[in-house]
Write a protein that binds this DNA or RNA. Structure first.
Lengths: 181, 181
DNA sequence: AAATTACTTGTAATTATTGACATATAATTT
DNA sequence: AAATTATATGTCAATAATTACAAGTAATTT
């Protein structure tokens, strides 16, 4: 999946692994995160497979930057992937729920501490989402139909917002239930 | 993570890989799914690591069943894992959102078809959750404090229900938005 | 000026997960 | 009776993801 995210971003413009890491962190990480190590190694793999090319930029003298660009094959594979609709529910994974599921033997206070801490984190995440406003970066302005793109970005953000609010509500109810055991 | 799920279930009673697969499918798969191949290989790995032991049951003559049981080391590792609270948000992954994020260049109708199909699947999932009622299986009745366990199982199910409802609402709104482009 | 922290770029080893292949029995349908 | 589908049990190869290690530059703080 990461492969397609990287191709998607490289369709906008050529960039380095670090640029991609920042883009991922600021957008898709909310529904598909990746460590920088995975991004760098995936880019190398993609280059071997002919999906991207890279050139070394030495304009800085000191710092070597490897700039990746998508190839025609990469563009075609990306479109092909976008064309094949999902026919299943994406599997979800939530380790907090795994832990809660098996928490029958735990101290009530320990479970409550964990849930209250998660509540804090969820609250922060919600605040973070509320501050996000898709903005036109200069580089993107002419390369893509920004208004149309932004609409789709906004939709994914809307799910994030709804998700955090739902989760917070559930945490509150769950904490209350355990307190009343 | 799967390791701990398997240990958690084996704490209830010894069982085979297939038994575990069914238990996972019927419960934790909603927040942590696993293919049978992963379950069988993880069990082998756990046996090598001394977390479980296995005996071959030939009582059937024809069919060989390998029955796994948790060791003291396994029990201790499981408790240790439960004791260390999560201090971060579990990362979430949703390939539908990845696809939507990059859907700026797609035909409206193609995106709509995909979202409408996901709506169907989510609706089915919601119905499925609504039919789940934790019941006491004979084998479990004396081994664990079922009522307490069931409360925690119920909580994870509640999140599943809230999640599907939230997702359906978002899908409806998103479909409507795209229709009105 | 030195120390610390954040930024930037990667590699390597390990672990986890997926997808394909394989095989045999049991139950059901045609 | 034959064919098909569901049940049950696994292995193996490939891919994906995580964690740890490494090493240098840039910016900020003391």
């Amino acid at each position: 999946m990461l492969k397609y995210i990287l191709l998607g971003f490289l369709n906008y413009q050529p960039m380095t692994g670090y640029d991609l890491k920042r883009l991922v962190d600021g957008s898709t990480a909310h529904f598909w995160h990746a460590y920088h190590s995975q991004i760098y190694t995936t880019l190398r793999k993609m280059e071997q497979d002919g999906l991207v090319t890279s050139i070394i930029d030495n304009s800085d003298e000191r710092l070597e930057r490897r700039i990746y660009d998508v190839t025609e094959l990469g563009k075609s594979k990306f479109k092909q992937w976008l064309g094949k609709s999902l026919t299943e529910l994406p599997p979800s994974k939530d380790s907090l729920l795994v832990r809660l599921f098996f928490s029958g033997s735990r101290d009530r206070s320990s479970v409550l501490d964990e849930l209250r801490f998660q509540r804090q984190l969820r609250q922060q995440q919600l605040e973070l989402y509320r501050q996000i406003k898709p903005e036109k970066s200069p580089a993107e302005s002419d390369l893509i139909d920004f208004d149309r793109e932004a609409k789709f970005w906004r939709m994914t953000l809307d799910l994030g917002l709804a998700y955090e609010q739902m989760y917070l509500k559930w945490l509150d109810e769950t904490i209350a239930k355990i307190e009343s055991f």
